[in-house]
């Protein structure tokens, strides 16, 4: 099989670390309401930098988890990857369409964008891991 472009296996753990690092940062920010100064809303202001930092951490973390190579990346894994990706995209667009129908407010669009930032990747990771788990469970003893 022709090799597909994927990140090395160890990047999964790097991605997980990045994702886990972003969680306390977000929590602290929400708890203490750090960057809600409306005057400080320009490009590369502290609020903007903070937003970029946390979002980039989260998205790159999820991206690395999703597209890191399995220990043995063979054609069956490739097939599972593809079908998981398809289901994730299906579900994502379903959610998106539902959101579009039930939003009538410009402020909500920002939340929808935020949701779309991580929902497809998250769904893909969950479905892919679930399929691998199911595959390993279904193995017959030799």
């Amino acid at each position: 099989m022709k090799p597909q472009f994927l990140f090395p296996t160890w990047t999964r753990w790097l991605g997980l670390a990045l994702f886990l690092v972003h969680l306390p940062v977000i929590l602290i920010c929400k708890t203490y309401d750090i960057h809600s100064d409306p005057a400080d809303s320009g490009m590369f202001s502290s609020g903007h930098l903070f937003f970029v930092l946390t979002v980039v951490l989260m998205v790159s973390g999820l991206f690395l988890i999703a597209f890191s190579r399995e220990r043995i990346e063979d054609e069956q894994i490739y097939q599972l990857r593809l079908s998981s990706l398809r289901w994730a995209i299906f579900a994502n667009y379903f959610i998106l369409i539902i959101c579009l129908i039930f939003t009538n407010n410009r402020a909500d669009y920002k939340d929808m964008l935020r949701l779309n930032l991580w929902v497809p990747l998250m769904l893909f990771i969950i479905i892919f891991r679930w399929k691998i788990y199911r595959l390993n469970r279904s193995l017959k003893p030799e």
Binding site: M1, I72, E75, Q76, S138
Partner: peptide, 26 residues
């Protein structure tokens, strides 16, 4: 066998139990 042809043991197992159809190359 899996090591000889460069796939996972899971793949050989699922081929044997007719759950997975291998590609022509495999």
């Amino acid at each position: 066998l899996a090591e000889l042809i460069g796939v996972s043991r899971q793949t050989i197992n699922t081929i044997e139990s007719n759950k997975y159809v291998p590609s022509t190359v495999l």
